[in-house]
């Protein structure tokens, strides 16, 4: 184990980028061979987004604002959360297969390669249909933005991109940790399913929570960081809370911790003996 880690350490970003590209091409090739599945999946992705938007729309047909947040502000949060969830969908989708790989023993193959186990496992799947969500999210965000008084400048665009990138780290961290529970418990599918459902509430302002639950949804299951805190920077520039300012650091911390947790599980993995 130690020797291997040392080999990896000598390899830089370019090495991993090249490997990633190679694995990606293989994955896309195998996906294209199941054409019907590919088309249905893409359609399904579009449909979930339409349905999600429809429920949002129905809600605002009945209630004109939520906790002082108007229609376009909520729409902004909604678009923001969709984009922030795209990297999880596209790049980290293989976490859903982790428990099957671990239980069947297939996971051992990832341990025998001279590259980072987490990197190798995660890079094996690139979920193309997640890009549909990205397009939808960008559309919603742009539409909301055009109805709000946020200036469109190079600075705000750059800020937005930075904020979106950091926001995406939080849900990735949650799902990494949820997936890694399979190294310890059987039937960890439940943990993932439940954690994944929380993302649906990322699009609502975290100001609706109070007391203990505000802390819970900020620091334990950090869904408040997926849209609310980062989005405040541009939405309410006069009163940006500290948590919004340091959200990039917190995002990196969460991601790092989830990575460590994942690797801890991978390191104790002993295979199934077959």
């Amino acid at each position: 184990m130690n020797g291997r880690t040392q080999i990896c350490r000598g390899r830089g970003f370019r090495f991993y980028a090249r490997i990633y590209r190679k694995i990606l091409v293989q994955d896309l090739k195998s996906k294209m061979s199941y054409r019907a599945d590919f088309i249905i999946s893409t359609f399904g992705m579009v449909l979930t987004n339409i349905v999600g938007f429809l429920s949002f729309y129905i809600l605002f047909q009945n209630f004109s604002s939520i906790n002082g947040w108007g229609y376009y502000e909520m729409l902004y949060l909604y678009g923001f959360s969709l984009i922030a969830l795209t990297p999880l969908q596209c790049l980290f989708d293989n976490n859903w297969n982790l428990r099957f790989a671990v239980r069947s023993g297939d996971f051992i193959k990832y341990c025998f390669r001279p590259i980072n186990v987490f990197f190798y496992f995660i890079s094996e799947v690139f979920d193309v249909k997640g890009l549909g969500q990205l397009v939808f999210g960008v559309g919603v965000l742009a539409y909301a933005w055009s109805h709000l008084v946020i200036p469109v400048t190079v600075v705000t665009i750059l800020q937005l991109i930075l904020l979106l990138l950091t926001a995406s780290l939080f849900m990735i961290a949650i799902m990494n940790a949820a997936a890694a529970t399979c190294f310890w418990i059987i039937n960890s599918g439940y943990v993932m399913v439940i954690m994944f459902r929380f993302k649906d509430y990322a699009k609502y302002p975290a100001s609706i929570f109070d007391g203990f639950f505000k802390l819970l949804f900020t620091f334990v299951i950090p869904i408040a960081f997926i849209a609310y805190y980062p989005a405040l920077v541009l939405l309410r520039p006069d009163e940006i809370p500290l948590l919004s300012r340091i959200s990039p650091l917190i995002g990196i911390l969460f991601f790092y911790l989830s990575y460590k947790f994942w690797m801890l599980g991978a390191r104790k993995y002993e295979g199934t003996g077959s």
Binding site: Y34, A36, I40, S41, F43, G44, M45, L47, I58
Partner: peptide
Amino acid sequence: YTESTWGINIVKESIVLMLSGATI
């Protein structure tokens, strides 16, 4: 017929949960 798992599931799930009143 389709050998699709994820796609069929997600289509079914979003339609059923929305139109049955489970979400709103």
